[in-house]
Computed example of a mutant assay.
Amino acid sequence: MTFKGFTENTDNIETPNDINVSEKPLNTKKISSGRVDINVLKSKLEEQQSKEFRKNLFIFSFCVFLLGAIGVYLSL
């Protein structure tokens, strides 16, 4: 009975020598710096604040409801 180990199944895998290619950025396009409309920035900020306000209002109302439910439960 012959017992074969992992030593017979070794493969030599070499890494490629193209290190300079991997250091290049993926996007080669240059970003042009143009003017930005202040109204667009304001609308994005207002939209973000609106979402945050709705989330905070939901959390606050849930806590108030939870405290009310606990109060009713403990008073019985």
Score class of each variant (00 low, 15 high):
30 K>D: 12
50 S>D: 06
46 E>F: 04
45 L>E: 06
21 V>F: 10
51 K>H: 02
6 F>L: 11
72 V>S: 05
58 F>E: 13
45 L>Q: 08
8 E>P: 01
6 F>P: 02
18 D>S: 06
50 S>M: 03
50 S>Q: 10
43 S>L: 05
68 G>P: 00
59 I>E: 10
51 K>A: 04
34 G>K: 11
32 S>T: 12
41 L>E: 10
51 K>V: 01
42 K>R: 13
17 N>C: 02
26 L>Q: 12
20 N>Y: 07
67 L>I: 15
53 F>H: 13
64 V>C: 13
39 N>I: 02
51 K>W: 00
37 D>M: 03
69 A>I: 04
75 S>F: 15
8 E>W: 02
38 I>R: 11
64 V>E: 00
14 E>P: 00
70 I>K: 02
35 R>V: 04
8 E>R: 06
43 S>N: 14
65 F>H: 03
55 K>D: 06
68 G>M: 14
43 S>I: 04
72 V>T: 11
45 L>N: 06
13 I>R: 11
49 Q>H: 07
65 F>T: 10
52 E>F: 01
73 Y>V: 07
42 K>P: 00
66 L>N: 06
48 Q>I: 04
53 F>P: 00
7 T>G: 15
15 T>N: 12
62 F>H: 02
56 N>Q: 15
69 A>P: 01
43 S>H: 05
53 F>Y: 15
56 N>F: 02
46 E>D: 11
7 T>D: 15
9 N>L: 13
